[in-house]
Amino acid sequence: MVESFVRLMPKQGFQEWPSLMGDMAELCRETEYRLVKDGYRKATTLHIEDRNYKELMERINKDGLIYTPILKAAYSEGFIHEHKEAKEGEPFYWYGCVTKTYKEGQEFKKADGSAEQKKPNHIKLGKLLGYPECCIDYFNKKFPQNWDPIWIEKSGRVCGYPECNRLLRYFGVHITWHFSCSPVCEKTKEEGKKWFSVMKEMDKELAEKIYNLLSKSMTWDSYHGVVQIETPYFVGLSRTFPYLEKKRVINWEVKKK
């Protein structure tokens, strides 16, 4: 398996996109936090590094939320599907969750299992994270087969809602945070409306840019453990689940109303 990494290269004439994607990812992270703060969902995960520990903990305290540290995780570049405990002296970050109450934080920690090296309870985690039941069920069944379960039975032309588009997840850009069970999952679309409205409250222009990007045709091409995503503006790469014998390609198009 290749080392975890993520890369993003703009096409000529679109030099601003790496920086813009960084801004978009930041807005997506803020939205996730805000939805817990506003009581729309019970929990969200949060990585805290040494460099931002003070700032984040003060903010969490100020917002009356609880941070439950789960694992002192080994640092890695880019997208990962599991957290590994950092060895003595290794660079690390804290993997944990933000909740409204101590009880919910402990429930999340128990369901996550990584602190005790137990298998995660995806159903319980999905409920705490506020995901639709159909998508929790999908993830629970598919994750053991493929740890990057983007509609794993689908390839070729795939039409769906921008709210369901998780093809840019490696770069932190998406409207909803879960793997939708289908590119046309109505529950995800409904959830997405709420998420998108919160995003717009924080930064209307940037939120609309995210929506427009997720609505664009793009190609997701997964082979030999590396996924290559081409959008009209850039090409991005990340480590992913390794398709060894044959590549899987999704040609994404937004479903017309």
């Binding site: 290749v2 990494f5 890369r7 290269m9 096409k11 590396v226």
Partner: peptide, 11 residues
């Protein structure tokens, strides 16, 4: 034309 990444990888 895809612009060059600043960092080289051995992927």
């Amino acid at each position: 034309i895809l612009l060059r990444d600043k960092k080289e990888y051995d992927t």
